[in-house]
Amino acid sequence: MESRSGDREGEEEQHRRVPLRERPEWSDVTPLPQNDGPNPVVPIQYTEDFAEVTDYFRAVYVADERSPRALALTDEAIQFNSGNYTVWHFRRLILESLKIDLHSELGFVERMAAGNSKNYQMWHHRRWVAEKLGPEAGNIELEFTKKILSIDAKHYHAWSHRKWVLQSLGGWEDELNYCTELLEEDIFNNSAWSQRYFVITRSPFLGGLKAMRESEVLYTIGAIEAYPENESSWRYLRGLYKGETTSWVNDPQVSSVCLKILRTKSNYLFALSTILDLICSGYQPNEDIRDAIDALKTTDMDKQNSDVDDIGDQKILNMAGSICSILEQVDPIRVNYWIWRKSRLLPST
């Protein structure tokens, strides 16, 4: 992750941290050291500052002191260790007790996120704040996640938060465009494809999967043609026909894009596996597809199947077998998977 902004870093350099034990406002508190028990299993050497902050935190926590200074202390404690659930919990208790304006808390989370945004506690805290602020926070939250995603477009926490925001606070209107934007930047971004599927299946404005299928199929086929080696776009295409295998098998657009890619003879792994899936679901390949597949066979490949003048089902079965043989060669790391697929083609006796 990117580190915090340059400004802040400079600021911190200038103001050297004053230990709590030297600050007058903390003179009445006796820090409470961690009791690690006898010879702990995973011994830990604490850094001095971290240990001090934690010891003071323990003291205010045990005394249940919900004061401005305790709030400031949680800030410091979280900066040292943003993974500690207890500190975040206590911070929320203080925020509630002191009736703090939660808009300022958004700024606090943003500062924390600038340091380390891959942290469950921070995101849960953010959601708690956004939930309290209600729908007015919707846009702020979408912008916040957008900022994080502009640094790391596959940030799992940011995407989870964004999905929650859309469902709880709204803001769906622009989301499909946002997905398109991100996919233009990186068509391999599986998170953006996942979000796109989320939007077309759940947005209250788009009419659902069926209503979106036609335009989405066009979009996805364009993406596949540009980068046929993209696992995400192929899976998305299949997802567009979820629960409607017959439409998928019968849609000429699906077999056409496969054929087009097979004919290029490069990056055709997913096109070929899609044809295999189609055949297994009852698709009857035409001569063009058959020729394209034959053209991919290597000379040493078992050709016996295609030499015979088979008819009907047997012919298709043999073609599926050839597809598996090709995939065994071009995808050797998963050779066992393709062998298994081939074994499933054998007519049961």
């Binding site: 995973v42 830990i44 050497q45 850094t47 260790n81 993974g83």
Partner: peptide, 16 residues
Amino acid sequence: EKRKDNFESVVMEHLR
């Protein structure tokens, strides 16, 4: 984590 001032050891405290 017997090494001193190690970042991991600091963040590990709460998930001992």
